[in-house]
Deep mutational scan, measured.
Amino acid sequence: NKFNKELQWATWEILNLPNLNEEQVKAFIDSLKDDPSQSANLLAEAKKLNDAQA
């Protein structure tokens, strides 16, 4: 289903952001699991944090 694909993509993207630490990655992944419908928003937040920590 649509959410599953978005969830998988967002998870992969977050796991490959170079500037997030392990705790941050885990928090984002946990949030994705809690509410897959928010995957696009969570991914945007993760990318923002990644850029801020570059």
Rank of each mutant, 00 (worst) to 15 (best):
P36E: 03
P18I: 10
L20S: 00
L43N: 01
K33I: 13
F3S: 12
N50F: 01
K5V: 07
S31G: 09
D51N: 11
Q38M: 09
L17E: 00
S39N: 06
A52Q: 13
W12Q: 06
A52D: 09
E6Q: 07
L42T: 10
K26V: 07
L43G: 01
A27Q: 08
W9R: 10
I14G: 01
L17W: 02
A52T: 10
K2Y: 07
A44K: 12
L7H: 03
N19Y: 12
E45F: 13
N50L: 01
W9P: 02
A52L: 14
N1I: 05
K5P: 14
F3P: 15
L17A: 01
K47W: 10
E6D: 07
W12K: 04
I29D: 00
S31W: 10
D35A: 07
L15E: 12
E6K: 04
E13Y: 15
I29N: 02
N16S: 12
K2R: 09
W9H: 10
L15Y: 11
E6P: 04
Q53H: 05
D34M: 14
P18E: 08
T11D: 01
V25G: 02
D35Q: 09
T11G: 02
Q38Y: 04
Q38F: 05
A46R: 00
E22A: 13
L7W: 09
Q8P: 02
A52F: 10
L43P: 00
K33H: 13
L49Y: 04
L15T: 10
E13M: 15
Q38L: 06
K47L: 09
A54F: 10
L43W: 05
L32A: 04
N19S: 07
A10Q: 03
K47Q: 08
Q38T: 05
Q8T: 07
N41S: 11
F3H: 14
S39L: 14
F28S: 01
E22D: 13
K47F: 11
A27H: 12
A54N: 07
L17R: 00
K48A: 08
N1E: 12
L49W: 04
F3Q: 15
D30K: 14
K47T: 07
P36D: 02
E23W: 15
Q24P: 00
F3V: 14
A52P: 02
K5I: 05
A54D: 13
I14F: 03
V25P: 00
Q38N: 11
F28R: 00
A54S: 09
S37F: 07
Q53G: 05
L17I: 01
E23S: 11
L43Y: 08
A54M: 10
E45D: 09
K48W: 07
L15R: 08
L43K: 02
Q38H: 08
P36Q: 03
L7A: 10
W12D: 05
A46P: 00
E13G: 05
S31L: 12
A10Y: 13
K33F: 15
A44E: 05
F28L: 04
I29P: 00
N19K: 03
L49D: 02
L49V: 12
A10S: 04
D34F: 11
T11Y: 06
E22P: 13
P18N: 07
D34T: 11
I14H: 01
N4D: 15
D34I: 10
K2L: 11
N21V: 07
N21P: 02
S37V: 05
Q8A: 13
N19H: 12
A54W: 10
A44D: 07
L15A: 05
I29A: 03
S37R: 08
A44N: 09
F28A: 02
L32K: 00
W12N: 05
N21D: 08
N1W: 00
K48S: 10
A52K: 10
N4E: 15
